[in-house]
């Protein structure tokens, strides 16, 4: 037992581990904030679609040979978020179909580009780490860390300033519009912030697992808590604790970071499901 702690302590002294923990906590915090909105607005599929777009964008960045792929990925993903939102509104093009086209298209093109142009000798390894995050969180450049810190601050600031409005358009968009709230604008901002969160989160868990990072903490909190505020706070705490636990486990056990974190999220979800059943049962 003491053995584990000494190993852990020696890891925690290293700067790449410290960076990973800072970034991991920030990403977990950001990704959980809009989780409730995503789940309840049935936006989760947009989140899923966007994560595939981000994968394609990253492939493009890699092909062009950018050392820092985040700005380009961010730009492309934000544009797609806005497009998807617009299409969802357009009754003529089915929103779901549009998302499927864009997301599957980006996946295919991204993989194709990586195969055709990649100079790396280990393409499937590269693809795998973009999809599942593997160890990239432990090899962050200081640019990545700063980028992540800045974007996280923006996301949290947005969330705090627009908290009441996010609640309102999530709970009842028609009422919000009817009473003169700028629901269209808030939806747009939410879509952009979702794109930002996805791009930032990709570093932690890879593009395929982002939805899990966003949705599980919210689902867990919703089992037990009954107000929007308590659900939001609880899902933020769950998300951060799961990310930290997952990170430490993966460092110690050498498991892939992304899947380990999602695994912890799932365990916590099951625990909350049971708690919800028990406490809910008492009331009925």
């Amino acid at each position: 037992m003491t053995d584990i702690f000494t190993t852990l302590a020696s890891y925690l002294e290293r700067s790449f581990v410290q960076n990973a923990i800072i970034v991991g906590v920030l990403i977990a915090l950001c990704s959980s904030l809009l989780g409730v909105t995503l789940v309840l607005k049935r936006y989760s599929f947009i989140g899923d679609g966007l994560s595939h777009v981000a994968f394609g964008a990253m492939a493009i960045a890699a092909v062009i040979g950018l050392t820092d792929d985040m700005p380009l990925t961010l730009a492309i993903t934000v544009v797609c978020a806005v497009l998807l939102l617009r299409m969802g509104k357009n009754a003529k093009i089915k929103g779901d179909a549009a998302i499927a086209v864009i997301s599957v298209g980006s996946l295919a093109i991204g993989y194709l580009l990586m195969n055709l142009f990649s100079t790396s000798s280990n393409i499937s390894g590269d693809v795998c780490s973009t999809l599942f995050g593997s160890t990239s969180i432990l090899t962050l450049s200081s640019f990545d860390v700063w980028m992540c810190v800045i974007l996280s601050v923006i996301v949290v600031l947005f969330f705090v300033l627009f908290y009441n409005r996010i609640f309102s358009v999530t709970f009842d968009e028609n009422f919000a519009k009817a009473t003169g709230q700028r629901a269209g604008l808030y939806n747009l901002l939410i879509a952009i912030v979702i794109a930002v969160i996805i791009v930032v989160s990709m570093q932690l868990v890879g593009s395929l697992l982002i939805s899990a990072l966003v949705i599980f903490p919210a689902l867990s909190a919703m089992r037990v808590f009954k107000s929007f505020k308590s659900v939001t706070i609880c899902s933020a705490i769950i998300s951060v604790i799961c990310a930290l636990t997952g990170l430490l486990i993966s460092i110690l056990a050498g498991t892939p970071v992304g899947s380990t974190i999602v695994g912890v999220d799932i365990v916590v979800f099951i625990i909350f499901l049971i708690i919800g059943k028990i406490t809910g049962g008492k009331k009925a």
Partner: peptide, 22 residues
Amino acid sequence: TDVQRDFPASVYEIVISGCLGR
């Protein structure tokens, strides 16, 4: 709507959100 049926919100949070359009 269906969304509201499983929305976690307190009565107060919902009532006061009516003020946002003011």
